[in-house]
């Protein structure tokens, strides 16, 4: 029994040989070393990210507006009257918390992504919750961000239970190093967070083809709700995803971050949000370690200053 217990653990040497990146090393060698604290607002504040993206020409979902104080909360009706579908997000939210997606509305009844109908009073109290800091890091005072709703590509509709399938690309020093697609499940309550039970599908940096898939750190082959073979997943315009991720590295001053990208039916890949502390579950989804890839990038001289295209080419040549 003790043997089987021990068997559940890998030896540190084995993990090291597999090039696995641990939480401590991620925090110490990459986040603390490459991400300066003062640049965090660039990713933690969604409005700042959006403004930077607009300036750099990185495509994102259209901005409708922002509500910053309780007094303005009742104005949301006027703000959204020209937008048939919109999303309300906390400006400093993380992990998909506090995001309300309205697929359609007539000014009185608002239809959510799961088809249920809510009234304007509930939207008003949701905005109030956001402003009071319910969803923000550390409970600080927050603002509510209104974005145009993305019309998701049909190509993923069979692979996700409600929710937004998004693609997370880890970028280090401008090089895309690892990618995965996150698919919402019934278990994850329609959210695309791995630790809440979403399916993570590792994607090859070279061509965006699926490599492995995990759910709650365990390997899976089919989507638990839709039953689709995850190996049939195909990401259109893969190179544009990589370009978008690499351009994010130029617009924010973080050396190590995760770019979350969604696929719009008309506009193609759009930047959803950036994350200065991307999780490590992506390694399990890819069945590959981050550390060996990061160390390879770490050895490259910074003086050469290759262009984004060169960096993408390098990554595609080296990372499967």
């Amino acid at each position: 029994m003790f043997g089987s217990l021990l068997n559940a653990f890998a030896s540190p040497a084995a993990l090291r040989n597999a090039g696995v990146l641990g939480m401590n090393r991620r925090n110490h060698d990459y986040i603390a070393a490459y991400n300066r604290r003062r640049y965090y607002p660039m990713v933690d504040d969604k409005l700042v990210t959006k403004e930077l993206a607009l300036k750099a020409g990185v495509p994102t979902a259209g901005l409708i507006g922002a509500i910053r104080c309780q007094h303005d909360a009742k104005n949301f009706m006027r703000m959204t009257e020209n937008s048939p579908a919109f999303v309300i997000k906390p400006g400093h939210g993380s992990g998909g918390r506090g995001i309300l997606v309205i697929k359609s509305h007539n000014g009185e009844e608002f239809r959510k992504a799961d088809g249920s109908i809510i009234g304007s009073q509930q939207i008003y109290s949701h905005i109030t919750n956001i402003l009071s800091g319910l969803y923000s890091l550390g409970g600080q005072v927050d603002y509510a961000l209104f974005e145009e709703c993305i019309s998701f590509s049909d190509v993923f509709s069979d692979f996700s239970f409600q929710g937004v399938p998004d693609i997370r690309i880890i970028v280090f020093r401008g090089y895309p190093v690892m990618a995965m697609m996150r698919l919402a499940t019934r278990r994850s309550d329609g959210r695309a967070n791995l630790h809440q039970g979403a399916v993570g599908v590792g994607l090859s940096i070279r061509d965006g083809k699926p490599r492995r898939a995990v759910m709650l750190d365990q390997p899976v082959t089919r989507h638990p709700d839709t039953g689709r073979m995850l190996s049939e997943l195909a990401v259109p315009d893969w190179d544009r995803h990589l370009e978008l991720a690499a351009r994010c590295a130029e617009m924010i001053k973080l050396g190590y971050f995760g770019a979350d990208i969604v696929n719009d039916r008309e506009k193609g890949p759009l930047l959803l949000e950036l994350n200065a502390r991307p999780g490590l579950g992506i390694q399990i989804a890819n069945h590959a370690g981050l550390r060996s890839r990061l160390e390879l990038i770490g050895t490259l001289p910074s003086s050469a200053l290759p262009s984004a295209a060169e960096k993408i080419a390098f990554a595609q040549a080296h990372f499967d």
Binding site: A10, D217, Q283, G289
Partner: peptide, 21 residues
């Protein structure tokens, strides 16, 4: 910066060779 004890379990699938998926 070494591995945490729980990571030895979490990332075990990455080193197990008998992964058919």
């Amino acid at each position: 910066t070494g591995y945490r004890l729980t990571e030895l379990k979490r990332f075990k699938p990455l080193v197990s060779s008998c992964s058919d998926h």
